[in-house]
């Protein structure tokens, strides 16, 4: 009885592993095959001859470096801007009482529930009127704040005992010093969580750069790669998978190094 239970447990575990992991392995394997080998049926598990040049082909078939630069600029600028706006707003909401506070915080909470899928059309029209379509700010500015980040950081700031801030005041610290030396260091775990969530979210973002761009100038990697593949009719699965591997790698690396953090971050974001 025990053996049956144990082996069925093992089989199910193996099944989970294969279902969720094998597609990525398949992606990697396919990315190293020749065009001919990808078109074999039944398919081969491993490439007969590892075609590392597929990656060079993939990169050369599109303005890859341009997309990559755009992705990096958009992702990093978004994170930095979110840190600035989130820290200042969360600090105000956590430590000041002011007229209109409730309304403003309510707006922040509501904005958390307004998806880009609702606003993109009017924002596109608005940016078109400003004549800044196909520039990077259109991909950054709407994400310069993080409602979730403000909510989370406000909780963190509130959980800091008042005594510690009073102690700092008695230590003759200015308000700025209190924020920089006392409160922010205590908020680092929250900021790491926010940074990871924003990095993953922005790096992966497909919808927004797709609907807000009409040419390659401001496209980020995911949109750029898909657009290029569509343009060439999408039958070169080996280079398509090579591009895809390039897209996944940064996320994979971060996932390998900060897996515990990431899992915690997402648990927190959904477990509220």
């Amino acid at each position: 009885m025990k053996i049956v239970k144990k082996s069925s447990h093992l089989i199910l575990s193996l099944f989970i592993f294969i279902v969720f992991f094998f597609p990525f392995l398949w992606m990697f394997s396919s990315s190293l095959k020749t065009l001919g080998e990808t078109l074999q049926f039944p398919p081969t598990l491993f490439p007969e001859d590892w075609q590392w040049l597929n990656y060079v082909d993939a990169i050369q078939s599109m303005p890859f470096w341009n997309f990559l630069t755009n992705s990096l600029i958009v992702t990093l600028t978004t994170i930095i801007l979110q840190f600035i706006t989130t820290i200042t707003a969360a600090y105000a909401f956590a430590r000041y009482r002011f007229v209109g506070e409730k309304v403003m915080f309510g707006l922040v909470m509501v904005s958390m529930m307004v998806p880009g899928q609702l606003t993109f059309l009017t924002i596109f029209v608005m940016f078109a009127e400003w004549e800044i379509i196909n520039t990077l700010p259109t991909l950054i500015l709407p994400f310069a704040i993080s409602a979730f980040g403000i909510f989370m950081l406000r909780q963190t700031f509130r959980s800091i005992p008042n005594e510690i801030i009073e102690a700092a005041k008695l230590d003759n610290a200015t308000e700025f010093t209190v924020i920089r030396k006392v409160m922010l260091p205590m908020a680092i775990p929250t900021l790491v969580t926010l940074g990871l969530l924003t990095f993953i979210g922005t790096w992966n973002e497909y919808f927004w750069p797709l609907v807000l761009t009409t040419n390659n100038d401001a496209r980020t990697l995911p949109v750029g790669i898909v657009a290029m593949i569509n343009a060439e009719d999408g039958t070169n699965y080996h280079t398509m998978m090579a591009s895809n591997v390039l897209l996944v790698i940064p996320i994979l690396i971060i996932y390998l190094f900060a897996q515990r953090h990431i899992i915690k971050a997402f648990t927190y974001s959904g477990g509220r």
Partner: peptide, 29 residues
């Protein structure tokens, strides 16, 4: 370990996932 394997697709871009499955679901190969 299994949990982090099953969670990985969630942190990967929907674009990647779609490309990957367009290949896996190809009707001929």
């Amino acid at each position: 370990f299994l949990q982090s394997i099953s969670f990985f697709p969630y942190v990967v871009s929907l674009a990647s996932v779609s490309l990957l499955w367009s290949w896996i679901m190809n009707k001929d190969y």
